[in-house]
Computed example of a mutant assay.
Amino acid sequence: MSTQQTRPPGWLSKSHKHGPSWLRQVRLRFLRWRAAIHRNPQASFVYKWCVGTVGGIVIAGGLLLVPLPGPGWLIVFLGVAIIASEFTWARDLLLWGRALLHRWTQWLGRSHWIVRVLVAGATCAFVLMVVWGVLRLIGLPDWVPDQFVPGWLGFE
């Protein structure tokens, strides 16, 4: 039996040999520290609770940013990745999300150019509607000159 089969997944895989040496050392130190944490049940519980809390806060912040222009879904996936470092169900969710995103991009890449233009146009229209709604809710900033705001937008 080789040593590769007896190692836990991700502990010392081939990926640890790539990248700068200082980064490999930091990664190995972190993995050893985390293994030491998990040997103590109380410390492991606190560590998992902290990881879950931080990941949950990142996910909540990402969900707040989803309807706004910007990286909302990317932040949600980052929060799930944080939680996935300690919880199997989150790892499964992350893998499912990655597979879904991959299938979507593959489908969009195989689609006719008209479909891609329609998807891009619908995305742009949605973002513009959200920005318009937010500006209607909070009002235009004072630095926006009146001559650049058409009357049909509803800003008076």
Rank of each mutant, 00 (worst) to 15 (best):
P69D: 00
G97T: 06
V66Y: 03
A81L: 06
A84L: 00
A120T: 15
H102M: 14
L65H: 04
R91G: 09
A99R: 13
E86N: 02
P71G: 09
A81S: 10
S85D: 04
G70E: 05
L93K: 01
L95R: 15
W107M: 05
P69N: 00
W113S: 13
F87E: 04
W113A: 10
L93N: 00
S85T: 07
V80H: 02
W89D: 03
L108E: 08
W89P: 02
L108I: 09
F87P: 04
G109M: 11
A99H: 11
W73V: 01
V80T: 02
L100Y: 11
P69F: 00
L65I: 03
L64R: 08
R116E: 01
A120N: 12
A99C: 07
W73R: 02
L118N: 05
F87L: 05
W104S: 03
D92C: 09
A99M: 11
L63A: 04
Q106Y: 10
G97M: 12
L78S: 03
V117C: 13
W73F: 03
I82H: 00
Q106K: 13
G70L: 00
T88G: 09
W104L: 10
L65R: 10
L78F: 09
G62C: 01
W104R: 13
E86Y: 00
I114G: 14
V117M: 14
L118P: 03
L74S: 15
G61W: 11
L93P: 00
R98K: 07
V66A: 02
L94A: 14
F77Y: 15
L95Y: 15
S111A: 12
I114L: 12
W96M: 13
T105D: 08
A60M: 13
L93D: 00
E86C: 05
I114K: 14
L100V: 10
V58K: 06
L68Y: 12
L78I: 01
R91N: 03
T105H: 09
T88M: 06
G109K: 04
W113R: 14
L78D: 01
P71W: 14
Q106S: 10
G62Q: 01
W107G: 08
R110A: 15
I59K: 04
L74E: 14
L101W: 13
G62N: 08
L95G: 13
G109T: 03
V58H: 10
L108N: 07
E86D: 07
W104T: 08
H112R: 09
R91Y: 11
Q106D: 10
G61Y: 14
V117R: 08
W107A: 12
R116T: 01
P69S: 02
R103Q: 14
A60E: 09
V115L: 06
W113K: 09
I75W: 03
D92F: 13
G79L: 00
